[in-house]
Amino acid sequence: MELILEKINHSYGDMPVLTDISLSVGSGEIVCVVGPSGCGKSTLLRIIGGLERPTSGEVLMSGEPPADSLNPLTYVFQDFALLPWRTVEGNVRLVLEDHRIGRERVGAVVDDVLARTKLTEFAAAYPRQLSGGMKQRVAIARALSVNPAVMLMDEPLSALDSQTRDLLMDDLIELWTQVRFSACYITHNLAEAVRLGHRIVVMSRRPGRIRDIVEIDIPLSERPGFPTETAAIQRRLWEMMRDEARAADRELSDVA
């Protein structure tokens, strides 16, 4: 299934936040969106997943999602959004309970995603007992359990320390190699974008528009073997963003 954004414009009152965003996320492709803070990246992601209506423009799905996909557009949130009163297993079960798929299949799916995210031994733990990295693993397991056509990831690693972030990036690549999910991955961290993105969309500061799209054709799993190339791309992205980021930093925020 392919996801197509057509001329998305969005504004809060008189304040334009997104201007003329056209973009597509192909099957099995990870598209990273980078941009200075306040450029509307997260708003864009909420629009893509249908949590917010754009002022104009459309988000279209082309082709059918996989038949066993329970929730084609599935989010992974920055703050994990785990229910503190449910165990790891219960948090994953939550999103399966509403679908009439039978007790046995639910159990099998839960076991499978927990094994894939290396959480099996933590199935009975509560979120408060887990580190930030483990919490985000649970959120990723929950997202994988509904077999999404496109994962919408909103700065999923931004709340984590840099070591945990590296470990989770490796895990994400391993998971991607297994199931080839497609994803729209929002981040402000260029290293993440260069490590995980097939294509990197650079956005300008508010009102956000697409400044450039950078394609990286080194396969995800081989990227650690090309440090100079990836570093060069990262530098190029930073050159593009530096002035925007500086200007954005000095802006007064009057968005409520």
């Binding site: 997943g49 949590l51 329970l70 929730n71 557009l73 599935t74 989010y75 949130f77 703050d79 959004a81 229910l83 939550l94 999103v95 309970e97 509403d98 929950r142 509904v146």
Partner: peptide
Amino acid sequence: RSLIRMGQSFGLSWSS
């Protein structure tokens, strides 16, 4: 609110 948004994003029913 972020938990409610999570529930909506996974297509949970209103009663759920």
